[in-house]
């Protein structure tokens, strides 16, 4: 059931999306695209890691699959890019099912490392395969034609609405029976199975769903860059960024990734604007992550809510 606030949020999101497409200049639109794409991916990684306990070092597998699915289908068929975009989650989701069945033989640390290696295998495979563009990558040419105009105009609107819709959808999901099952599995896995939940199938469903989600976000992103290299798509940088965003913001909360993205990009823009180097920015991010984990191991958002409830309780007594 959708609640009133969620309905309002969706409406506001739709209006904001249209405004962003019309009124923002294209530099800002490009930045916003990046922010929103990272948010979408972080929320997906968070659903897998924070709710289902699937901490993976290999989300770049799905970034790559999403990007390559978009480019390969668009370039080699006459299907419009926007239709391909809608096909990406289906294609990648179908690939994720057998992949998930393999990697779910692995647990904990083995799973994290195994998913990373799987992504690395995909990367090396693309590099070795000339029909996929090899190591030099691909240029987006839908139906063989160059892209005209500024795709970020539409992408920013879609990504903004998708971000709001995703939060609403996740809230609804967590209230549903299946969402309850996810929370139960997070709390106690064998206990959950003993209530009749098919834990394996649930894990696989979440893996597929989050993989397809990351791939779709990646497809949105690479539709604005107009070219795609395997080194960029399959690099572990994606895992690093998503982990930062989610862990610092608050693993296993819906608001945490939003805070994480805001910090991550906000600090970067601030530091670049003031003449600091990329390395200096990452040093600060690293220190920030260490400090947050040592002082507030749950992340910023859970710490804030705990602080807030303590404050209000303190006032009423």
């Amino acid at each position: 059931m959708m609640k009133k606030v969620e309905f309002v949020a969706l409406a506001v999101g739709a209006i904001a999306a249209i405004c962003a497409a019309i009124f923002l200049d294209s530099g800002l639109q490009f930045l916003l695209c990046e922010v929103l794409v990272l948010f979408l991916m972080a929320q997906m990684w968070n659903l897998a890691a924070g709710y289902a306990g699937q901490i993976s070092f290999g989300p770049q597998m799905f970034v790559g699959l999403g990007g390559y699915a978009l480019y390969m289908i668009s370039n080699n068929t006459t299907i419009p890019v926007w239709v391909v975009m809608a096909l990406v989650p289906i294609v990648v989701g179908l690939l994720a099912i057998p992949l998930g069945m393999v990697v779910f033989h692995l647990k904990h640390a083995y799973f994290a490392i195994g998913t990373w290696v799987a992504a690395e295998i995909a990367f090396q495979f693309v590099i070795k395969t000339p029909s996929l563009g090899g190591s030099s990558g691909l240029v987006l040419r839908p139906g063989g034609e160059m892209v005209e105009g500024y795709p970020e105009k539409t992408v920013v609107a879609v990504a903004l609405f998708a971000s709001v819709a995703l939060i609403v959808a996740l809230r609804m999901f967590l209230r549903s029976r299946l969402g309850l099952a996810v929370l139960a599995v997070r709390d106690n896995e064998t206990g959950a199975e003993a209530t009749g939940i098919n834990v394996r199938r649930l894990h696989l469903a979440l893996y597929t769903l989050t993989g397809a989600g990351i791939a779709t976000a990646a497809a949105l992103y690479y539709s604005t860059t107009l070219f795609l290299t395997p080194l960029d798509a399959f690099q572990a940088k994606w895992a690093v960024e998503l982990m930062f965003i989610v862990v610092v913001g608050g693993l296993g909360t819906l608001t945490g990734p939003a805070i994480g993205v805001a910090l991550f990009i906000g600090l970067r823009e601030f530091m670049t604007a003031n003449g600091y180097s990329g390395d200096q920015y990452w040093i600060i991010m690293g220190v920030l992550a260490i400090a947050v984990l040592l002082l507030l191991p749950q992340g910023i958002w859970p710490a804030l809510t705990t602080f807030y409830t303590r404050m209000t309780r303190g006032n009423t007594q």
Binding site: R177, L180, L183, A184, D187, N188, A192, T195
Partner: peptide, 13 residues
């Protein structure tokens, strides 16, 4: 029991 879920949610599962 699922310690972070409510009693009712525990029984619902």
């Amino acid at each position: 029991t699922f310690s972070r879920l409510s009693v009712r949610e525990n029984v619902s599962l």
